[in-house]
Amino acid sequence: MSVLQVQDLKKTYGKIQALKGVSFEIPEGAVFGILGPNGSGKTTMLSIILDVLNADSGSYSWFGQPASPDLRKHIGSLLETPNFYHYLSAVNNLKITNSISGRGDAAAIEAVLHKVKLYERRDSRFSSYSLGMKQRLAIAAALLGDPQILVLDEPTNGLDPVGIMEIRELIIELSKKGHTIIMASHLLDEVEKVCTHVAILKTGTLITSGSVEDVLVDEDIVEIGAADLEQLKHVLSNYPGATSTTFNAQTIQLHFPKGTASAEAMNRYCFNNGIALQYLSIKKKRLEERFFELTNN
């Protein structure tokens, strides 16, 4: 079942086309990453699906229905810079969020402050918080009422490595409990570690979308090694099906069209030609490498 369906969304600011007919679907239970360089349309996209901005054309629906106040109660969001009253404590700021959104209660406020590790500073003024702590409070506000869907714009912004790891673990934990999470991020490594699906934007155009597995794999890469690397090079010079070969210091990588590589066939071929392999692995490109391939074309 699709949680969100986006169809041909377009948005312009004067002469700038922020979104150029973007369409995709987000399956229920996914951790969906929206990636793109600065100015690619990520925040504009999130603002539209949260009813903060109006699209020039196109449509979107939550669970097959148009957005409504009732549906919005099932969506927690963090959009751009955390915005709280500087002279109020975390608890009092979240009470205001609760009264506006209608999500959560006193027990929920306490629970989310524990989740984002701000409970010990719950009575401190917002103005005394570091940037990372302010970001944690914004995530706490999004979690009020245990919403089914979370929409997070750069959720690890301003966090140190420990804080990034904690938010990553929180996202994974929420996903395991059945939440659908939509997050925009420029931290490719974090998206690769937590997201199940991804959409990549470039200057308002959707370059690709789908499961992380499908987006990453545009070819098969088999990496092998043997005691006599020169002999291995010679044996593999005419290996059928390989589109290219990369020679490294201790291994050789053979590139194949997606879905055609066979580790078993490679091992058998080398053995039949007098080579006992010491190492054999089918590798995947990292999201960072694939991202730059897609956005630099």
Rank of each mutant, 00 (worst) to 15 (best):
F292T: 10
S211D: 09
G204R: 01
E293C: 07
A226C: 00
K193D: 10
G102L: 08
W62Q: 08
I164L: 05
S68C: 04
R121S: 11
T243S: 12
V222F: 07
H255D: 01
L188Q: 06
L53Y: 15
A265I: 04
N267S: 12
T44V: 11
Q7V: 06
D214I: 00
V22K: 03
N157G: 04
V215R: 03
T12D: 00
L118T: 02
S128W: 11
N157R: 05
I16V: 14
A242M: 03
T156E: 04
Y87E: 14
S185F: 06
T156L: 01
E120C: 00
D51A: 13
R72H: 15
M266D: 08
D51T: 14
K10Q: 08
R268C: 09
N157L: 08
T97W: 07
G163P: 14
V198Y: 02
S124C: 13
I48F: 02
K233R: 14
N273S: 01
V235P: 09
L94H: 08
H179T: 08
K10R: 05
I167S: 11
H197W: 07
H197N: 10
L159Q: 11
I139K: 01
F24H: 02
A249C: 01
C195M: 00
A106M: 07
I96L: 15
K177D: 15
L46H: 00
C270T: 13
D8S: 05
S68W: 13
G102W: 06
M183N: 09
D220I: 05
E110V: 15
L4A: 11
I275L: 05
M133D: 11
H234E: 13
T12M: 13
K20I: 01
K11A: 06
Y239E: 01
D105T: 11
P240E: 03
N273R: 15
S281E: 13
I109A: 12
I26T: 12
V3G: 08
T205Q: 14
P161Y: 04
L159S: 08
S244D: 07
R290I: 11
I49C: 05
K283S: 02
E28Q: 14
L35F: 03
I181F: 11
G21F: 07
F292H: 08
L254W: 08
